[in-house]
Structure formats: structure tokens, C-alpha cells
Design a protein around this nucleic acid. Structure first.
Lengths: 359, 359
DNA sequence: TTGAAAGCGCTAACAG
DNA sequence: CTGTTAGCGCTTTCAA
């Protein structure tokens, strides 16, 4: 056994042992240049090449030029894997969402992707397909391959999240707030949004409302429903019918007949997709909107302006959430702390799908 | 200088030298367990721990249990970075698209995300914001942090792609085909789609058509336009008006008045978003669809069924593209080759936005 | 400013 | 079946 220097400076030429089975295991795409090869070609040490590649100012310009030339000539690209290991950071951030087909999460993805991209970071994305348990696993996994995480997990139980808090950190929670969790959260004030909707509707003389409920267990749905119930109880005379529905177009579409039958003058949909679906369904049934029944959505997805009639809905700062999430991550990664939680106050957008209650 | 064994088996206790500035550089989140610590705790070698963690069958069950217990007790999680370096692969695949807000790319993202997720791989996503040059840079960068790449780059010039072919490999191209490029491609037969649209329209007696053109430089737009022109020239008497438009709702919306003025009986939109926009615009102008003018889309995005009237459009296998892309990547990564290129043949979906030409 | 050396944490060929 | 050993390719003290 020979004492090694810990690194193979001298092993460039084949030693006594049989040449390592070529093409089998080589981490690099076959003949990819390594820092050692560049160093050799430029006649400097690996440390110097490293410095040059990382733009250290304290390198003799002439040397630097030589190194750059050698790197160029060899088509050298630093190994991301090796840097990750040596540096102890990945240069990536991760996003975990329940469902990539949901416009809400798409906006966050987009905002985050752009912000992270501008900062020169990779973005890892994972989708749990609405399975809360899977979500947590994915989050852990994603977190191991990144430096920080944005988690949208409307269904996972509070305790589960609290239990995993430090294995997930640093991370930020979006569209949700969990008490006692040590992570910044960016969420929506659902109650305020519902409040605005209801007072708009009440102002138009609507008394009997239906709520097209979102998925069971969704934190957003729970809050919206609770707000509605509270309003119905406290209010002067609002009568609330809750209809189980879902979160997709089809769900809303399928609920149209139940809406028509239950004799309400206005329907508050869990979100814009459901609202659009019910709009279409109602039209097919010959029910006039907003003449006979008014419809409201939630979220203000891009399509909401293009339904017929255009959807009155609650607007929330979707892509802002992505951007903010990035800011928080950045803070967290720099050890600056994640800042205060924020609850975005939604804004009611009155378009054509609501009007006076029929006499 | 002392002869090292190449790895710090013996350095668990602080040596003579000053304890490395704590909390500054440590690759692991402070006190994270390493394979060495686990090995020590279980009284075995690191190789054995590695074997156990990777489920090698040739490990004494009793030892394996001991190792697992130790790992558990120490909250050990293998370092992804170290594995990447040692293994020479990242375990991730990447997707680069021009625009994450485009439903077309969202579907690919989704299909790919699910397929890759099921296979236990991470997914890296990057968005170029429609800048073809940026796209190529991002692709290179993404590729360095993954094992294979799916590239949607409708605008980058053919030569550019050919030039970078081997630095990008293994990769697959979606929604596009580039001659002489050594990468499988999955694309749409745009001409066939347009053909179906035109014959449907012609069958309804439409003679004067407008094309709402997509972005300049988009490969898909070019093909659709070329097909339309060819048909207009060859055809019995189709008169084509090309209107510059774009790819978004707003673009279609804004084009409505030009459509109304140019006296056509049918408009073929670049895609569904444009079609939806023009539908809304036309309605606002009091133009009846399909009574006065028929409208067709392209892509069959989820929302197309929910416009008013529902959109007649060309359906393409969007999420299939994502799944297939994954299959190809898998093949490529296993050295099986990427298979033949495929051009998906679109299908015309006749819904309510088209009808007989007005007399 | 530069180089030598010592890792980062894991895997795998090889020998026993 | 298990341990030893030699890396994977890069960064970063530390000393010159």
C-alpha cells in the first residue's frame, strides 16, 4: 500500500494497474476535460485554474489568459457535481406542488422560475398529484437536491408539516399558513376575498347563495367555506347551500344542474375553473347568467376574462407569490431570516357574470 | 506532512490544527451524519453501509439491520452531491421551454414530470422567456446539471441547434424537427392539421379565410402558414388573408376588429388562445359566431371546450408528448438509441365555433 | 499571487 | 460477504 497524496496529480499516465475499464463508469462524458487537464495544459496548478474559473481577482492577468485559452481549447466545463460536493451547495432551489395543471401553481412556478433563473439558479420541480403523503416525501427528496424549497401543500396535515419542519428548512410555504411552523409563509386572505364577494352579491339583492365547494381537505376550501358560513350566520339573512363539487372545469360543469335546481340566485364557486364550468353548464341548461343567476369565481386565472360572460372573481397576486417566494428563499439562504408572514389581501374584480338578483 | 489514507477515517476527533471555522463552509447542514459516522456506529466499513443503503442483496441480514438501525438513529441521509460525483450521473432530467405560461408546454411539463417522477428522477425546468439565444444557453446549463434534456425551442435557428447537438446530447426535441440533427424529435404534423381545418371549412362553403398568424420565427407558425398558402394556391378557390397576430388571448382579442373588417367568413387562428381571444372580441363587436363568421383554433387546450361557443380545434396529443419524451430519454440514457422521429397526426375536433358560411 | 495538500461524501474494483 | 483502497473533480486553507 502506498501513501497517497489524497488526489491523483500524478496519475495522469496509466500506472501499473490495468487501465480502468474504459467507458463503463467514467463520470464524465468520455473524454471530457477536467480541471487537472486544463491545469496541465496551461502549466499551472489546479488551484489557479479554479481561481480563474471563478473569477478571482488575485490572479496574474497573463496566467489567467493562458488558463482561459487552455480551457477554451479543451472545451472545458467545470463539473457541476464536483462543485456541489466541494462547495456544499447545489445552486438549485425546488418547488413542490400538488398539481401542475392548476393555474394557481403554474403562476407560482412561473414567477419562481423567472426569479431563480435571473439569479442563475436551477429550478427543480416536483408534482405530488394531490397526494399529501407523497408531497412530503417529494419535498424531502427535492430538498436534498437543492438549497431551499418552496412548498405548496394545501392538503398535508399541520402536524406532519411541523414534524418535518427542520428537515425541510430552509423553505417557504405558499397558499397556506401553519401555526407553529418555523418557515415564512405567503398566503391569501380567503376570508377577506369571500367577504368582498358576499357583500357585492348582497348589495345586488342576492339572499340565497350556493357554494360550489372545492376538494375536501384543501386548506383554501376550508377557509372559504368557513368564511361563508360565518357570514351566513352573522348576516342579515343570507341563506347558504353548500354543494360538493371539486376544483376542475368538469366538476363545475357537472354541478350546473344541481345549481339550477336548488333555487339560488347566485353561486360562489371555489375557484375560476369551477366557475367557468358552471357557466358553460348553465348556458347549456338555458339558464341566463347573470340574468337568472350570478356566478363568482376565485383566483382570477388568465382565462377568467374570456369566459362568457366574463367572470366576476377574486383576484390574487399569483405570480407575485412566486417572486416573493424567491425573495424569501434568498433571504433564508443568506441567513437573513425569512421575514414576516404575509397574507395577501385579494381584490374583487367585477365583470359580467354578476348582476342584480331577479325580482 | 503526513501520509493520509485518502479519506479521513481517523479525523473524527479534532486534530491539532484549529477547528475548521465552524458554520462557514461545511457542505452538510452542520451536524449531518455521513456514511463514515454510520459505519463507525454500526461497526462496519463504509462500503458495507453503501451496500446496505443501495439495497445490495449480498449483505448479511444481521449486519444490514445493524446498519439500518445506526442510519436511522443518526438521521442519516446520503449526500446527493457525493453520489452524483461518485456515480457520474445526476439522477435528474431537464426541460427547457420558451414560455411556461403556454398550455402547450405546460402539458409537456406535466407529462414529463409525472413520468420522470415515477421513475424516481428529479426534473429541472428552465424557461427562456422566448429568447432563442437564451434558450440555448439555458439548455447547456440545464444539461450540465442533468443526465438528459427535453428541449422545446420553436425559435432557435436550425444551424445553432445542429452546432450544439453533441454538447446537448442526449436530448429530445419536441414540437419541432431539425434536419441533420442527431436527436429524436417528437413533433406535430401541422400541415395535416391545417388540411383538416380547411377541408372542414370548405365543406361548409367557406371561401374567404383569414389566418391569425402566430409569432414570427415560430416553427409551428411557419408550417401552418405554409400549409395554408399551399392549400389556397392549389385549392379550387380559397382566398386567404393573413393577419399578423401573436400567440396570446390579448393578441386574438385585439385582432377581432381587423377580422370583422376584412370580410372573411371564417378565421383560422394560430392557436386556441388566439381563437378564444378573437371569439370574445367578436362577441363584443356583435359579430355572431358561427352565424356570421366561423372560428377555428389549434392545440385543443383544456379551456377550448369551455369557450362560447365551444371551439372547433385541432387536437394534438400534448401530454403524450411529455410521456413519450420521457421514454425517449430513458432509451437514450440506457444507450438504446432514441428511436425514430415521430410526427403526431392531429385530429380535428368539431365543436360549436364553426358552421356553414353565410349565404 | 501561486502551489501543495487535504478534504467534500460516496462508490466500486479488488482481494480476502 | 466484507473491508481496503483509490478515486470522482472541484475548492480552499496554508505556506511559500
Amino acid at each position: 500500500m502506498r501513501a497517497s497524496t489524497g488526489d491523483g496529480e500524478q496519475d495522469l499516465e496509466a500506472p501499473a494497474s490495468p487501465p480502468r475499464q474504459a467507458g463503463r463508469r467514467g463520470p464524465r462524458p468520455a473524454g471530457q476535460a477536467t480541471i487537472s487537464r486544463v491545469a496541465e495544459a496551461a502549466g499551472v496548478s489546479r488551484a489557479t485554474v479554479s481561481r480563474v474559473m471563478n473569477g478571482s481577482p488575485s490572479v496574474n492577468p497573463e496566467l489567467a489568459a493562458r488558463v482561459r485559452a487552455a480551457a477554451e481549447a479543451l472545451d472545458y466545463e467545470p463539473s457541476a457535481a464536483a462543485r456541489r460536493l466541494a462547495l456544499g451547495r447545489t445552486g438549485a432551489v425546488a418547488l413542490v406542488v400538488p398539481d401542475l395543471s392548476n393555474p394557481l401553481f403554474q403562476s407560482v412556478l412561473r414567477g419562481l422560475s423567472q426569479a431563480a433563473g435571473r439569479a442563475g439558479r436551477q429550478l427543480l420541480v416536483a408534482e405530488s398529484d394531490e397526494d399529501p403523503e407523497e408531497e412530503v416525501i417529494l419535498a424531502l427528496e427535492a430538498r436534498r437536491n437543492s438549497d431551499a424549497l418552496v412548498l405548496a401543500s394545501p392538503r398535508a396535515p399541520d402536524e406532519r408539516l411541523r414534524a418535518l419542519g427542520d428537515r425541510l428548512a430552509p423553505f417557504v410555504l405558499v397558499y397556506r399558513e401553519v401555526a407553529g411552523l418555523d418557515a415564512p409563509s405567503l398566503s391569501i386572505d380567503n376570508a377577506a376575498g369571500i367577504g368582498a364577494v358576499v357583500s357585492h352579491l348582497a348589495g345586488h339583492g342576492h339572499r340565497r347563495l350556493a357554494y360550489l365547494a372545492g376538494p375536501d381537505g384543501s386548506a383554501g376550501n376550508a377557509e372559504r367555506l368557513a368564511a361563508l358560513r360565518a357570514l351566513a350566520q352573522a348576516g342579515p339573512g343570507i341563506e347558504l347551500t353548500v354543494l360538493a363539487c371539486g376544483s376542475m372545469f368538469e366538476h363545475g360543469h357537472a354541478a350546473a344542474s344541481r345549481v339550477a335546481e336548488c333555487g339560488v340566485s347566485a353561486v360562489v364557486a371555489f375557484n375560476d375553473m369551477v366557475a367557468s364550468g358552471v357557466l358553460t353548464g348553465l348556458r347549456e341548461l338555458g339558464v341566463r347568467v347573470p340574468g337568472e343567476v350570478s356566478v363568482t369565481g376565485f383566483d382570477d386565472i388568465p382565462f377568467a376574462r374570456y369566459t362568457t360572460p366574463p367572470l366576476t372573481t377574486v383576484s390574487i397576486p399569483q405570480s407575485e407569490l412566486g417572486r416573493q417566494a424567491w425573495e424569501r428563499l434568498r433571504g433564508l439562504m443568506n441567513g437573513e431570516g425569512g421575514g414576516y408572514n404575509v397574507r395577501y389581501q385579494p381584490r374583487l374584480l367585477i365583470r359580467g357574470s354578476t348582476g342584480p338578483a331577479p325580482a
